[in-house]
Amino acid sequence: MSTPHPGGGPAHGQWVPPPAHARKGRRKWPWVLLVVVLLLAGGCTALVLGLAEETGKTVRVRYEVTGSAKGVAIAYTTWKDGALVTQKEGPRDLPWRKELTTKDFVKGGLLAVTTGKGGGTVSCSVTVNDRRPWTAAASGPDATATCSGF
């Protein structure tokens, strides 16, 4: 049996593990960084695939606006070369309908309808390839109904 060192430390020749801050273990940050990069890459890939899901296919987009408002302003998305382009019409009386087909479709479209100072009601509806429509409604002076995200 060894006798303790007079200073309270280990006896001569006895092995003592190094302090925790001096240990050379495996570093975790490169693995954490790798996981973060992989998650970001996977998320970006899913986003791009989701946005381009209809690219190359012929897509039919049907816009419809109804209501009692007179002289409304309408802004809607069209697609050209894979980019979103905003078209504007107005002042117009309701109902208003427009249908278009495109092969450059990417998600993120918009249909916004604004009543004038005279108020009234407006409802918008957007249907893409006969799927469930995006809808919204608004009423009052200078009110806006917005269908977006299709």
Results as ranks from 00 to 15, higher is better:
residue 36 V to M: 14
residue 44 C to T: 14
residue 28 K to T: 10
residue 14 Q to A: 15
residue 37 V to E: 02
residue 18 P to N: 01
residue 21 H to A: 12
residue 30 P to W: 12
residue 44 C to Q: 13
residue 50 G to P: 02
residue 20 A to G: 04
residue 23 R to H: 10
residue 47 L to T: 08
residue 14 Q to M: 13
residue 48 V to Q: 02
residue 52 A to Q: 07
residue 24 K to S: 08
residue 47 L to F: 10
residue 8 G to T: 06
residue 5 H to K: 01
residue 45 T to S: 10
residue 53 E to I: 05
residue 45 T to R: 13
residue 9 G to M: 01
residue 19 P to R: 15
residue 8 G to C: 09
residue 23 R to P: 05
residue 26 R to T: 11
residue 30 P to K: 09
residue 44 C to A: 11
residue 29 W to M: 13
residue 48 V to I: 09
residue 31 W to H: 04
residue 41 A to G: 09
residue 16 V to L: 12
residue 24 K to A: 11
residue 16 V to M: 15
residue 37 V to S: 00
residue 6 P to E: 05
residue 35 V to A: 15
residue 22 A to S: 10
residue 5 H to W: 01
residue 38 L to S: 01
residue 14 Q to L: 15
residue 20 A to W: 06
residue 37 V to F: 07
residue 7 G to A: 14
residue 31 W to V: 02
residue 46 A to E: 04
residue 54 E to Y: 06
residue 15 W to P: 14
residue 52 A to N: 06
residue 16 V to H: 03
residue 48 V to T: 11
residue 46 A to Y: 09
residue 45 T to E: 07
residue 7 G to M: 09
residue 35 V to G: 04
residue 7 G to P: 00
residue 32 V to F: 12
residue 37 V to C: 08
residue 36 V to W: 04
residue 5 H to F: 01
residue 18 P to A: 04
residue 7 G to N: 12
residue 39 L to Y: 03
residue 52 A to E: 04
residue 40 L to Y: 14
residue 42 G to V: 13
residue 19 P to M: 07
residue 44 C to Y: 11
residue 46 A to T: 05
residue 23 R to S: 12
residue 11 A to Y: 03
residue 10 P to Q: 03
residue 53 E to T: 03
residue 40 L to R: 05
residue 11 A to L: 06
residue 14 Q to V: 15
residue 54 E to G: 01
residue 26 R to M: 05
residue 39 L to I: 15
residue 28 K to V: 14
residue 36 V to I: 15
residue 24 K to N: 02
residue 45 T to I: 06
residue 16 V to C: 14
residue 40 L to S: 10
residue 51 L to D: 02
residue 33 L to M: 10
residue 31 W to F: 09
residue 23 R to D: 04
residue 47 L to K: 07
residue 28 K to A: 12
residue 25 G to M: 14
residue 19 P to H: 12
residue 42 G to M: 13
residue 24 K to P: 01
residue 16 V to E: 15
residue 7 G to E: 13
residue 34 L to G: 02
residue 43 G to K: 11
residue 8 G to D: 09
residue 45 T to Q: 09
residue 26 R to N: 07
residue 49 L to A: 07
residue 48 V to Y: 07
residue 8 G to F: 09
residue 15 W to C: 01
residue 18 P to V: 06
residue 40 L to I: 07
residue 29 W to F: 11
residue 10 P to I: 00
residue 20 A to Y: 05
residue 48 V to S: 01
residue 55 T to E: 09
residue 22 A to R: 04
residue 23 R to I: 12
residue 53 E to H: 12
residue 35 V to T: 10
residue 9 G to T: 06
residue 33 L to D: 05
residue 32 V to E: 12
residue 5 H to A: 10
residue 10 P to D: 02
residue 48 V to F: 07
residue 29 W to Q: 14
residue 7 G to W: 09
residue 9 G to S: 10
residue 47 L to G: 00
residue 45 T to K: 05
residue 51 L to G: 08
residue 53 E to F: 07
residue 11 A to S: 14
residue 30 P to M: 07
residue 17 P to T: 03
residue 30 P to D: 08
residue 36 V to T: 13
residue 46 A to I: 06
residue 44 C to E: 07
residue 11 A to G: 15
residue 9 G to I: 00
residue 29 W to E: 14
residue 6 P to M: 00
residue 8 G to H: 04
